[in-house]
Amino acid sequence: MNPVPPSPTALAAEHFLARQSFIELKARERAELLVDAGTARELAGPFDRISSPWLAAQGLVPQADDGVVIVRGAMNARPVVVISIEGGFQGGSMGEVSAAKIAASLDLARKVGEQGTPIPAVLVFESGGVRLQEANLGLALTGEIHRAMLALRRVVPVVGVIPGMVGCFGGMAIAAALCSHLIMTREGRLSLNGPEVIEQEAGPAEFDSHDRKLIWEITGGAQRYAAGFADELVEDDVQTLADALRAALARGVPARHRSERVGEFLERIARIDDPLRFDSAMLRDLFAGLKTDERHVSR
């Protein structure tokens, strides 16, 4: 009997069924699945019970890990720290504890690392930004995350992924922009101000927060990748994401990070005569060729 080759449609269906969604996983499962099997070790986990000291006074139930999972483990058999934010708890927002967990882990990755050698970091972004219930401490400690990322990425890569569910906003959108390499899915969103905030501050004519299509056209992973703000667009699959992260780590530290390319960006922005007529097609043209520097320095 001659085996009948499966049709392309059947292959696609099989592939779809074989996929394991990364988006549907919780932060802890995400971190544990990303590192090499059997190497995950969580730090300052739920049983350490360092939760937010500010939420209870506002009638909000804290979570034992404050929504941030820190896992030390290996990727490509080399040590790494994975920082995974739980979008289900308070929208993945950055409070005193959650932000301090991220900043302190990044500092330890640089200062202590593995036997004195700095180790790279992987950040899984799922955050509405600063937690307004801890406003100014969240803001200040988000600044500490930025500082710690900038110090660490000089010596080892800091790789970010925005898988999607909550997306990545506010101060954490700035953090995403500071990554050595940023990976998104089509389901991921990235922007500084959320649509509701823009609508509140500038009116519905500026941004209609109910216009789903507009939101995805501006902030969605496909657009961010096309415009050169993300380095890679991958599908929502655990193995695909893990492979992309391993490849990004192997690539090392870019010769220049995107946020250092001041002259090039200023020159391009200066070309925008009338911002009011600016659209996404113009954007793709404008920043074409500004993807992360391909010349990487391996360290």
């Binding site: 739920p46 139930v61 979570q63 034992a64 289900g88 708890f89 308070q90």
Partner: peptide
């Protein structure tokens, strides 16, 4: 041994059992 499950998300909860 101790066990942790769940998330403090709307309509959900976390359990710390030890």
């Amino acid at each position: 041994r101790r066990a942790h499950v769940g998330v403090v998300a709307s309509g959900d909860m976390e359990v710390l059992l030890e």
